[in-house]
């Protein structure tokens, strides 16, 4: 089955991000296709490379990056939600005159159309959040 994933909550604050990761991993192992993972609301904070969790805790951001590399996942951060919350790629940094970029490996910033398109094309949209 072709699945699209939407994540609406940030890392560490809320289990939605952990559940989405574990679900995505299990779905891939079961042979399903993950056409896109879309990060919305505070979910955009799953894609910042400035995260530094304690050594003995899971690294949620790195975990997504690694899963993306291993499985060629399309991890998309919503641009409108990202701008509000300070998640910035090279292009956004230059356009908005910011001092840094902080999008983690394997993530890209794009528009809400990517979420709608994913929902149309996938067999199921699975939403993680409150």
């Amino acid at each position: 089955m072709k699945l699209a994933i939407q994540i609406n909550e940030g890392p560490y604050q809320h289990e939605a991000s952990d559940s989405a990761y574990l679900f995505t991993k299990a779905a891939l192992q079961a042979g399903h296709e993950i056409s896109r993972v879309f990060f919305y609301h505070d979910g955009v904070n799953n894609g910042t490379n400035l995260t530094t969790p304690p050594q003995d805790d899971r690294n949620i951001v790195k975990r997504w990056s690694e899963l993306a590399t291993e499985n060629e996942l399309d991890l998309v951060i919503c641009v409108a939600a990202a701008q509000r919350r300070g998640i910035v790629d090279q292009g956004e940094m230059e356009r908005n005159g910011k001092s840094a970029q902080n999008v983690a490996d394997g993530f890209r910033i794009s528009g809400l159309g990517q979420l709608v398109e994913a929902a149309i094309e996938a067999d199921r949209l699975v939403v993680f959040g409150d």
């Binding site: 919305y40 609301h41 409108a80 939600a81 809400l112 979420l115 709608v116 149309i120 409150d130």
Partner: peptide
């Protein structure tokens, strides 16, 4: 497809309602 946006939260207090509306407006083009 039949798309339904399910709005369950108060308009203020959290950003969900506003950002839901943003998806609705973008989604309308599809």
């Amino acid at each position: 497809k039949k798309f339904m946006y399910v709005n369950r939260k108060a308009p203020y207090g959290t950003v969900y309602a506003l950002e839901s509306l943003e998806v609705v407006l973008i989604g309308a083009a599809f």
